[in-house]
């Protein structure tokens, strides 16, 4: 499998806290990689570094390299905004733009970047909403406020907004933890379909979710990468005792 995102000796400090310690790993293209580990193990920190979200935190210091298609996204000449267009992010709590309609939410990314011709925008809205399986539910009320949707629908709308700008990688930080079980299953189903087009990296507290949706799993503990491998292997016969103790519920 081709490597889409590569971490090389990645270290992240917040002031004196060493949150991510010397992590090196490859995220394979067109696959889902889950990052699991107890609270505070550095998984969200690591995820956020992949689209340079720590740039805005003054105390944060990122060293090492993060390569996307073999190019360092922290290189001096790279514009973080262009990186965030290629690497989308979906957050724990659905965050549609509150004053906007469903339609405007989907094309928000495009509107920020350039003007869209009407026909083109219509097409982007339809394709993106279809791809997240939301189209049939909202096609008759595209101009209504996005906040009227249910939590699960809002989260799928946010994913539609993310994929509307045609990213290559989608980062998901606990994308289903604020949703009910049925909405969660829909998001998981969606992740399975999205991986055909995108490379997905998902942080989750829910180990069964990691086991269900991912092809590869990375287990982090206190900032260190303890084990990384095929999900099937990690959940049936992990190499490291620490991994085994964590996933079987013996500590965490």
């Amino acid at each position: 499998m081709t490597c889409k995102v590569r971490l090389e000796a990645l270290n992240i400090h917040f002031g004196k806290t060493h949150a991510v310690k010397d992590i090196g790993m490859d995220f394979p293209e067109h696959s889902v990689t889950a990052i699991i580990g107890p609270s505070g193990c550095g998984k969200s920190t690591m995820l956020r570094s992949i689209n340079r979200m720590h740039d805005l935190v003054p105390s944060a210091r990122v060293t090492g390299r993060i390569l996307v298609d073999d190019a360092d996204i922290y290189a001096r000449e790279v514009d973080p905004v262009s990186i965030r267009r290629r690497i989308g992010m979906v957050f724990q709590k659905p965050n549609p733009f509150p004053a906007m309609s469903i339609y405007d939410n989907v094309v928000a990314g495009h509107k920020l970047n350039c003007r869209l011709v009407k026909g083109e925008a219509d097409e982007i809205v339809e394709t993106s909403l279809k791809r997240v399986a939301l189209w049939d539910e909202v096609k008759d009320r595209l101009k209504t406020n996005a906040m009227n949707l249910s939590g699960g629908q809002q989260q799928r709308l946010c994913i539609a907004r993310t994929i509307a700008v045609k990213p290559e990688v989608i980062l998901m930080d606990e994308p289903a933890s604020a949703l009910d079980p049925i909405s969660t299953l829909k998001i998981e189903e969606l992740i399975e379909e999205l991986k055909e087009r995108y490379t997905i990296i998902i942080v989750t507290h829910n180990m069964q979710q990691a086991a269900r949706v991912s092809d590869f799993t990375a287990f982090l503990y206190i900032g260190e990468l303890i084990e990384f491998g095929e999900t099937k292997k990690i959940f049936t016969t992990p190499e490291k005792k620490q991994t085994e103790d964590y996933i079987t519920g013996r500590f965490g």
Binding site: Q208, A211, P238, T243, I247, T248
Partner: peptide, 10 residues
């Protein structure tokens, strides 16, 4: 009830 994994699943 428990969705066992790894050694428990085995």
């Amino acid at each position: 009830r428990r969705q066992p994994t790894a050694r428990d699943l085995r």
